[in-house]
């Protein structure tokens, strides 16, 4: 867990709790998922091509470099999805989604 973003304003919002890679994290109503990830996790996803973690880039839904997973397998673009109480967010695909032959 690593903090990257720094909160500077708007700190009087209703607190919420969600899960990131199985760890409960504090956030505030109005945060987008990428903000939560950059305050608590330090990255959003791992590049499929072996060049390491990615932490989003454009914050406006254009670069597509912050797609995360929910526990049930849905895909969310972290920079344009509001965080909500009880969300179960994963930086990599949760186990068991892909029926991979042995």
């Amino acid at each position: 867990m690593q903090a990257r973003f720094v909160r500077l304003a708007e700190q009087e919002r209703r607190p919420i709790v969600l899960s990131v890679d199985g760890v409960a994290v504090d956030a505030m109503e109005g945060d987008v998922l990428l903000t939560v990830l950059m305050l608590h996790r330090g990255f959003a996803r791992i590049s499929e091509f072996g060049d390491g973690p990615r932490a989003g880039f454009c914050m406006m839904g254009a670069c597509q470099d912050c797609w995360v997973w929910t526990g049930s397998g849905d895909r969310l673009r972290a920079c344009s999805t509001a965080a909500a109480e009880g969300m179960d967010i994963h930086t990599s695909a949760p186990e068991g989604l892909w029926p991979i032959p042995a």
Partner: peptide, 9 residues
Amino acid sequence: TEPLPYFVH
């Protein structure tokens, strides 16, 4: 599609 774990051989 976007890249996914290699599951369809």
